[in-house]
Amino acid sequence: MSLFIAKRFATFVATLFGASVVVFLILEILPGDPAYAILGADADPSAYQALRKELGLDEPALDRYLSWISGVLTGDFGISYTYSVPVSELVVERLALTVPLAVIAMAMTVIVAIGLGLYAAAHHNKVGDWGVMVFSQLGIAVPNFWFGILLILLFSVYLGWFSSGGFPGWDAGLWPALKSLLLPAVALATVQAAILARVTRSSVLETIGEDYVRTARAKGLTRAATLWRHVLRNALIPVVTIMGLQFANLLAGTIVIENVFFLPGLGRLVFQAIANRDLVVVKDVVLLLAAMVVVVNFVVDIAYAIIDPRLRAHDA
């Protein structure tokens, strides 16, 4: 087990190193100068030069990379150009929105997808199955930002049940805060649930054909009990794999959805930071997102071992 964790940690470090190099290089290559972004295009040349020196932009690229990384390693994530506060403060504040949003969306995804997938498989080639397949085809085809706008139109403009965007903060109380995250979470979860429902359906259908499912039926278990006790857990392995991959999609989705719903989350932060050439923020947030994805993959690996006892033996 310790070997497993050591391997995982090495992967973690290597992935983060790779991500840091990639994001740094991309920001080097992309046109746009933070000093101009701050001062405006017709800035006084001497003020421009002074700001570049103050921000450290006149140093060679390698030096800038090393000073960024050494800062990150010692817990100093730098100061945002636009907000003039430490990036760590900004990020922690924004995570308080984005993490709950992602968790709610993921929970919706899992509940809806597994429910629909099981239902469709249990009604294979019947009306219920076709209904689920049509829903999932629609869900996959609809872009989440457009679906978000439709949700605003229906539930905010027309029905008036939800506000059309913005976030009152957790200080405003649990329910108002959760309420403002509900529509964005639905917009995020729809596509993911549609994909995951298909994966669940086909995985359950495959598992239903296994010999041990016939054994369970031969013991006298009903179809429903067999599905629940013998099929579901075996069918979960591909489902969990896709769930892990979807988490990365979900994080990317928050960038778009937080802009549609004007939510001050991590996605909106990174979007605005790119527009403002707030390079320190962009680099740090991308690194954080990469770290989150790697951690989720680690959790997925542990989930495999919990689901399937055959996978436990290898690391013992």
């Binding site: 016939r214 054994t215 031969a218």
Partner: peptide
């Protein structure tokens, strides 16, 4: 429902493939 009460109770079955007839999890 009545058939479920018969299966495994009045009539039981042993299958061909012991390697795959038991639930692995």
């Amino acid at each position: 429902a009545a058939m479920c009460h018969v299966r495994g109770n009045a009539i039981a079955m042993v299958f061909q493939e012991p390697m795959t007839s038991l639930n692995p999890v």
